[in-house]
Design a protein around this nucleic acid. Structure first.
Length: 596
RNA sequence: GCACCCGUAGUUCAGCUGGAUAGAAUAUCAGACUACGAAUCUGGGGGUCGGAGGUUCGAAUCCUUCCGGGUGCGCCA
C-alpha cells in the first residue's frame, strides 16, 4: 500500500490547480498539479504560515498583477471543504497558507505511534530497485584511523537510507589485500624479527610496520635503496606465487588485519552482505585487458595498454603496465563486471574520498565504452577528507588518529560523567550508555557535514558535546523517555496504536506546532537525503526537530497540563517525537540510550 | 598548464529544483533550576554571502571572468 508522503501539500496543490484552471480559461499556463506541489514552499519564518506559494509565475502567464493573483487564489483556498486550511493571508505576491494543525496531527501522529509511518515504500517500484553500496574498502596491513571512519559512517548510513526507502540493497566491502604496501610491511616485520605479543591488537601492531617501512625507504638511498627494493620485489613475487613462506606469511597476517577490521565494524555497527578482495579479481583483470584489447576498446601505447579517453577530456586510463601487471583501475573494471553479473544490480554507489574523482570518471567512462549499460548508473559518492588541525593525515607519514585509541579516550571522558550513576545503574548499563554516546558523537560528527566538505578533526571539539552534536540529539531522546517513564508512575499513558485514531488533538503553542511539523516532514526529508546521498540533510532536520522539542519542553507543561486528556495528547505527541527521532538516528547508525 | 571540488557572522556550518528582512551552533555579553532532567532554554551584539560583470519581476543559489584554498592529471593504490 502506498501512502501519500504529504497529504496536506497534495491537497493544496490540487486545490490551487483547480483555482488556477478556472482563472486561466484558455489554459495558457500549462502548469500541472505536480508543478504546484513543487512550488509550494516552507516560509522562512514560522509565523508566516505552514506553506507559501509565490504567484509571480502565474501572474506573468495570465498578465495579471502578482498580488491580485495571490488574492484570488487566497479567496478560493479559503472556501476549503477539506478542513486542511485554517486561514490564508496574502503578502504582496505570496499566498501564505495556515494549516489546521489538529488535522495535521491526526494525519501523522497515529501512524507514527503504530509504526506504519516508518514503512512507507517510497522507492520506485519496478526500475532501479537494486542498489549496491560499496564502502570502507580498507587496505589490509594498515591501521584503521578516523579518516576511514567517515567512509564507514557514510556508507552504512546510505545502506540504511536506501533500505528504508524500499530499495533492495547490497552492502559491499572491497579489501585491498594485494600490492606493494603489503610487501613493505612484511619486509619490515621480518627484518625486526618480532612476533605479535599475546593479547595485542594484531591489526594495529601490523600497521606500525608499514609506517616504519615507508620511513626506512624514504631515508635510504643509493645501493641500500636498490637492495631494499629488490628484497621487496622478491617478497611481492613470493606472495603472488601462491605458495611458499612469503605467501604463508601474507595469508596469516592478512587474517590479522581482516579480523581487526571486522571487530571495528561490529563495534560501530557497520554491516556488509558481500566482501570482495583485490586478490580475487586480479586474474580476471588480466582477462579483461586481453578481451577488450581485441575488441579495440583498449590500445597499446609505449608498451603499456589502456583506454584512450582524450575525446572525453579524461586522458588515458592505464590498464596494464609495461611489465605486464594490471593496476587498481583494471581491477575496478573487473569488480564492476562481477557486480553486474553476480548481483544483477542496476545502480552502483561507490563511497570513496574525493582524491579519486578522476579515477572513477575514467572507470565509469571505460565501462561505458566496454558496453555496460549500467555504467550510467554508477555513482561515485565523493567525500572530503578528514584532516587534522595541522594538516593532512596519512598512513605513510604515521600522523594519524587511530580509531581504537580515539575510542578509548572518548570512553574514558564519558565515564567521568556517567560514573555518578554507579550503584544506581548496573555497570552494564553504564558501559552500554558510554558506548552509545561515543558512537553517536562520532557518527553524528562525521555525518552532519555535507559529504563534499572536508572535515577538520579536533579532538577537543568532538568531546565538547555542545550545540549541533550527537549527544544533544541523544539527550533530547533521553529526556523524552524520562517524562514518559515518570508519567507511567502516576498512571498517565500515551495512546495505544489501536485507540489513537479516535483521539482529538489540540495543538496550541508555537513550539508544539513546530515539533508537529518536523515529525510530519520526516519521510519527505528521508527521501530527499536518500536521493541526494546526503545523510547530512537528515541530520540537520533531526537537529531542528530536537530544538523544537526542547523549546516545547520549556514552554508547555506535559504532566502538569490542565486536564487528563491534554496530558495524554501531549504525552502521545512527545512519544511520537521520540519514535521519529529514534528512527532517524537509526538511519544514521545511532542508537540513543534510554537515559543518560 | 588542464580538470574537478570548496569560498556565507571571529570560528564551524545550514540555506531544498532561483523567491519575502540571509539562518543555526560556537565564542562573547546578559538572563532562567524549590520546576516534566540546566548535556537545557530566553535575549543582545556580530554578515558588501571571495571580487566584478551578466540572465531575471526577483540571485548566496544559474552563466562568464578573475582571486584565494584543496584534490587529481599514464606505468602507486
Amino acid at each position: 500500500m502506498t501512502i501519500q508522503l504529504d497529504p496536506c501539500k497534495s491537497y493544496l496543490s490540487s486545490a490551487i490547480f483547480g483555482a488556477i484552471s478556472s482563472l486561466d480559461g484558455g489554459d495558457q499556463i500549462g502548469v500541472k498539479s505536480e508543478d504546484i506541489f513543487g512550488m509550494l514552499e516552507k516560509p522562512r519564518q514560522d509565523d508566516m504560515g505552514d506553506f507559501a506559494l509565490p504567484c509571480f509565475r502565474f501572474a506573468k502567464a495570465l498578465k495579471i498583477a502578482p498580488p491580485k493573483v495571490a488574492a484570488t487564489l487566497a479567496e478560493c483556498l479559503a472556501k476549503d471543504p477539506s478542513g486542511w486550511v485554517a486561514r490564508v493571508v496574502t503578502v504582496n505576491a505570496f499566498c501564505n497558507i495556515y494549516i489546521n494543525k489538529n488535522k495535521m496531527a491526526a494525519s501523522i501522529i497515529p501512524d507514527v505511534l503504530s509504526g506504519t509511518a516508518f514503512s512507507y515504500p517510497v522507492a520506485p517500484k519496478n526500475s532501479h530497485a537494486r542498489v549496491m553500496v560499496e564502502y570502507s574498502q580498507p587496505n589490509t596491513h594498515k591501521e584503521f584511523h578516523v579518516g576511514h571512519l567517515r567512509n564507514v559512517c557514510l556508507g552504512s548510513s546510505l545502506v540504511k537510507l536506501f533500505r528504508y526507502c524500499g530499495y533492495d540493497v547490497v552492502a559491499a566491502n572491497y579489501f585491498g589485500d594485494e600490492g606493494a604496501h603489503i610487501a613493505k610491511c612484511l619486509w619490515m616485520m621480518k627484518k625486526s624479527g618480532k612476533q605479535p605479543p599475546a593479547g595485542v591488537d594484531k591489526g594495529a601492531w601490523l600497521g606500525e610496520f608499514y609506517v616504519a617501512a615507508t620511513r626506512a625507504l624514504d631515508k635510504a638511498e643509493g645501493d641500500e635503496l636498490a637492495g631494499i627494493e629488490a628484497e621487496i620485489s622478491n617478497i611481492l613475487s613470493g606472495i603472488e606465487s601462491k605458495s611458499g613462506p612469503w605467501h604463508d606469511l601474507w595469508r596469516e597476517t592478512r587474517t590479522w588485519s581482516l579480523d581487526a577490521y571486522k571487530s571495528i565494524y561490529q563495534w560501530v555497527g557497520a554491516e556488509f552482505d558481500r566482501d570482495f578482495f583485490e586478490s580475487e579479481v586480479s586474474r580476471e583483470s588480466q582477462v579483461i585487458v586481453e578481451e577488450y584489447l581485441k575488441k579495440g576498446v583498449f590500445k597499446e601505447d609505449q608498451g603499456a595498454v589502456g583506454a584512450d579517453l582524450a575525446d572525453y577530456k579524461l586522458g588515458f586510463m592505464l590498464a596494464r603496465k609495461r611489465d605486464g601487471n594490471t593496476l587498481y583501475a583494471t581491477k575496478d573494471l573487473a569488480l564492476a563486471r562481477r557486480k553486474f553479473d553476480e548481483f544483477k544490480i542496476d545502480r552502483s554507489i561507490y563511497v570513496v574520498a574525493n582524491e579519486q574523482n578522476h579515477h572513477f570518471r575514467q572507470v565509469f567512462k571505460t565501462l561505458e565504452l566496454m558496453g555496460f549499460p549500467q555504467a550510467t548508473k554508477c555513482v561515485h559518492l565523493s567525500y572530503g577528507m578528514v584532516v587534522l588541525p595541522d594538516g593532512k593525515m596519512s598512513s605513510r607519514a604515521g600522523n594519524t588518529v587511530p580509531f581504537m585509541t580515539l575510542k578509548e579516550s572518548i570512553l574514558q571522558e564519558l565515564h567521568l560523567i556517567l560514573d555518578k550513576y554507579k550503584g544506581d545503574w548496573s555497570d552494564e548499563e553504564i558501559h552500554e550508555t558510554a558506548k552509545r554516546l561515543c558512537i553517536g558523537a562520532l557518527k553524528y560528527g562525521m555525518l552532519q557535514a555535507d559529504p563534499a566538505r572536508e572535515i577538520v578533526f579536533d579532538l577537543k571539539d568532538w568531546l565538547s558535546f555542545e550545540g549541533n552534536t550527537g549527544p544533544y540529539l541523544m539527550y533530547s531522546y533521553a529526556r523524552t523517555m524520562s517524562i514518559i517513564r515518570k508519567a507511567a508512575e502516576s498512571g498517565h499513558k500515551p495512546w495505544s496504536a489501536e485507540e489513537s485514531q479516535k483521539f482529538k488533538f489540540t495543538i496550541e503553542a508555537a513550539s508544539e506546532h513546530e515539533l508537529l511539523r518536523a515529525i510530519y516532514d520526516f519521510n519527505t526529508v528521508v527521501l530527499e537525503a536518500t536521493e541526494q546521498c546526503r545523510p547530512s540533510h537528515l541530520c540537520s532536520h533531526l537537529y531542528n526537530m530536537c530544538k523544537s522539542f526542547n523549546r516545547f519542553y520549556t514552554d508547555v507543561p506535559v504532566l502538569k497540563a490542565d486536564s487528563a486528556e491534554i496530558i495524554r495528547m501531549r504525552l502521545s505527541l512527545i512519544l511520537a517525537f521520540a519514535k521519529t527521532l529514534r528512527e532517524g538516528l537509526g538511519l544514521v547508525g545511532i542508537t540513543p540510550p534510554e537515559r543518560m
